[in-house]
């Protein structure tokens, strides 16, 4: 079933919408959730919550792209669950490592002039991503959007882990330079 038909099912309030979504994008949502939570049961719950959110949002919303609409919901829910589960400690999984790496992108206080909202910051991220080569962009996305481990990225892109790390390091430095160049404070 194509995405338009699935969205139509949501709009008709047909419960088949959920089963069709699960059939087509269940694995994708689970993949996103599991990379964040590293827990099978929590991931399954987050995927179900994703479907519930989608059910609540459609109608009135009609997403341009169902896959990324679901992916973004799954990512948000899973990150919130992660925070709730680990309020006072840092657990296993990629999130603590990714957060540590992202500290390197934070502009130094001296160079910053303006605090911007999330949407404007997302625009800057888009600008940054558009300037990367396709390979570096996909590696960066796999690490910081999908929260893949370096090992998984190296396997999927058929390169050494050190090459992946180097690519990520360069990208983080470039992002930091871009933020500093724009005079942005977080």
């Amino acid at each position: 079933m194509d995405d338009k038909q699935i969205i139509d099912l949501y709009w008709k309030r047909s419960e088949t919408a959920i089963s069709e979504t699960d059939k087509k994008y269940g694995r994708y949502c689970h993949y996103i959730a599991y990379n964040i939570l590293y827990d099978e049961e929590d991931s399954r719950e987050c995927v179900n919550d994703t479907y519930l959110k989608a059910w609540e949002a459609m109608p009135p919303h009609r997403p341009n792209r169902l896959v990324t609409f679901l992916g973004k919901i799954a990512r948000n829910i899973s990150l919130n669950r992660y925070k709730y589960n680990n309020a006072d400690k840092r657990s296993a999984g990629q999130v603590p490592l990714v957060l540590e790496e992202l500290q390197e992108c934070i502009p130094s206080a001296v160079s910053t002039e303006q605090v911007i909202d999330d949407l404007s910051l997302a625009d800057i991220f888009n600008q940054f991503l558009s300037g990367l080569s396709e390979e570096r962009r996909n590696i960066f996305m796999r690490r910081y959007w999908y929260l893949n481990s370096v090992k998984e990225i190296a396997r999927d892109f058929e390169m050494s882990e050190s090459k992946v790390k180097m690519s990520l390091l360069r990208s983080r430095n470039e992002l930091k330079q871009l933020l500093e160049g724009e005079g942005i404070a977080l």
């Binding site: 973004k72 990512r75 948000n76 990150l79 925070k83 999130v95 990714v98 957060l99 540590e100 992202l102 500290q103 992108c105 934070i106 999330d118 949407l119 910051l121 997302a122 991220f125 888009n126 991503l129 996305m141 910081y144 959007w145 977080l186």
Partner: peptide
């Protein structure tokens, strides 16, 4: 701040 980066990065 790094959490904000991670969250906003979800909006690309």
């Amino acid at each position: 701040k790094e959490e904000r980066l991670l969250n906003v990065f979800g909006m690309v």
